[in-house]
Amino acid sequence: MAFNILVVDDSGTMRALVKRVVQMSGIAVGEMYEAENGREALDILEKNWIDIVLSDINMPEMNGIEMLRRLKANDVEANVPVIFITTEGGEKTVSEAMALGAAGYVKKPFVPETIKGVMLEALEKAYGAVEMAGDGDVSGGDDMDF
């Protein structure tokens, strides 16, 4: 199974970085979608089959927490795992996200292995065994120099 992935962040450079990390993770990727805020993300989720969401929290128009709250209130999309990748690291924000049903939490700065690990855990919990498309070496190299 290849997973359709939605990356939500108001920063285009951060979306590009997260997409590169996912593509190099070895996880089989189908379609990759992008949204600049929670409102755009909900629109994409309504119109497309999305298997997992990787989202920032602090965004204009609609933040990630509000997006998750609305997602969980929707019968069709409530089970789509949402992982937050964010600078918001206070205990209050993390607790609120996890209480609302976030599938995982990655704090910036991150190393690629962290995102891969949290994604695998969330995908396995939601869909069972995860098919890998490659060796998934995200530890570094010329194409991923952080």
């Binding site: 108001d10 920063s11 450079t13 951060m14 602090n58 965004m59 204009p60 964010t86 600078t87 918001e88 690291g89 206070g90 205990e91 209050k92 924000t93 704090k107 910036k108 700065p109």
Partner: peptide
């Protein structure tokens, strides 16, 4: 990239001095 780097640095500072999350970051 400047916006995002600033966001990360300030978020990192808040994580160290404001563990309870009393403060919020703007855009």
């Amino acid at each position: 990239a400047g916006r995002e780097a600033t966001n990360m640095v300030v978020g990192g500072i808040l994580s160290r001095i404001d563990r309870e999350g009393r403060c919020r970051l703007g855009i």
